[in-house]
Amino acid sequence: MIVFDLRCTGDHRFEAWFASGESFADQQARGLIACPVCGDIDVRKAVMAPRIGAKSNQLASATAAAPAPTSGEPTPELVRKVLAEIAAKQAEMLPHSRWVGRDFADAARAMHEGRAAEDMIHGQASPDEAQALRDDGIAAMPLLVPIVPPEAAN
């Protein structure tokens, strides 16, 4: 399996797993890959950093220093690392997103129905509003790291 960072013409970036590079090319040619944000099928590989494993002589010392958990649960270090990566990605994306405050559900619905330009937005929605968006097939997801609304920031 191989993971590729992908980007659509709307500049939405996402990753996907494929059996091989040829599998990606085949699916791309047949229009089977679509952006999960906007549904665009004009998807290309994005520039990505290589994922290089540890050197074999460092692998033994790394496992000796930090024994693998036996319960199958992630280590606290791994959890901290993943949360830091999520926070960094969210911080990178928020400046490119428009704050809509409590009007999030209405703004997302207007974009979905074509009454407003598609844009990256963030704001606040009640649990009932979020569920109604999901029920209507409108893609929205919570920010994983809490933010301070602009009007509440110092």
Score class of each variant (00 low, 15 high):
120 M>N: 11
123 G>C: 10
20 S>G: 07
88 A>Y: 04
46 A>V: 07
98 R>M: 09
71 S>Y: 02
98 R>W: 00
51 R>Q: 13
118 E>I: 05
58 Q>D: 15
28 Q>H: 10
37 V>D: 14
48 M>N: 12
69 P>I: 01
71 S>F: 04
81 K>H: 13
30 R>Y: 08
107 A>I: 01
119 D>M: 13
42 D>L: 15
49 A>Q: 14
67 P>F: 05
136 D>F: 06
42 D>W: 10
140 A>K: 00
38 C>T: 11
24 F>V: 00
121 I>F: 05
11 D>R: 13
141 M>A: 12
22 E>A: 15
90 Q>Y: 02
78 L>R: 11
124 Q>C: 07
125 A>K: 04
75 T>E: 11
137 G>A: 06
94 L>Y: 05
96 H>S: 04
133 L>D: 07
35 C>L: 03
13 R>Q: 10
21 G>L: 07
21 G>T: 09
45 K>E: 10
30 R>D: 15
23 S>W: 03
40 D>W: 05
83 L>Y: 07
17 W>D: 15
140 A>W: 08
62 A>R: 14
62 A>P: 00
14 F>G: 02
124 Q>V: 14
56 S>M: 14
18 F>S: 02
75 T>L: 11
110 A>E: 11
72 G>P: 08
94 L>E: 03
16 A>P: 01
55 K>N: 13
102 R>T: 10
105 A>M: 00
105 A>I: 00
22 E>W: 08
69 P>V: 07
131 Q>C: 01
67 P>W: 04
130 A>V: 11
110 A>I: 05
78 L>C: 06
108 A>F: 01
139 A>Q: 09
61 S>C: 04
27 Q>D: 14
79 V>A: 13
140 A>Q: 09
42 D>K: 12
48 M>R: 14
63 T>E: 12
76 P>W: 03
71 S>Q: 07
40 D>E: 15
25 A>P: 02
135 D>Y: 02
137 G>F: 06
